[in-house]
Amino acid sequence: MSDDLTTLRLRVNGETRAVVFPTHHTLLEVLREELALTGTKHGCELGECGACAVLVDGRPVLSCLALAAEMEGREIETVEGLQIGNELHPLQATFADLNAAQCGYCTPGILMTAKALLAENPRPSGDEIREALAGNLCRCTGYHKIVEAVDWAAARMRGEEGTPPAEVFYGSPVPDAPRV
């Protein structure tokens, strides 16, 4: 068993932190265990679920499959860096308001992936949202509230007013049908 350690400066959420860790530890493990940034989750450990997604130089990557030792000089963003001061990022606000985060475990990975999408495409279609998030599994929501929350956040980030239609919150109006 190799006892190699790596020492480096990690840039996380715009801050520089010096860390020492066993070289074989992943970015996920270093974020959670050395930096106590436990907002980043793990669901499968093998790159199959997206729960551990963080941004590296603005792109979503799976932190369970990235060696922290390769992260020198890269800009890492986690869910903890998403809010602006004490204000929620529009994605965070719409996810909270639409119940797009139920158990909340897949949420950090999805929020970060959605952030990268909106940085690249401020007006994504539903299909584009689904495509961008296709590496993130969720077992609670059935995905629709997530797509609606990203869509609404994108609108808010474009400076548009308004909320999603009533059926997103209340369900569709029950159709009138004479009892047979």
Binding site: T38, G39, Q92, A96, N99, Y105, L111
Partner: peptide, 22 residues
Amino acid sequence: PFRRVDGRAKVTGATRFADDLS
């Protein structure tokens, strides 16, 4: 419809799941 009371914690990474405890 109202924002769930744990909504903010869940979107900021503040919710402490068991494995987040140390």
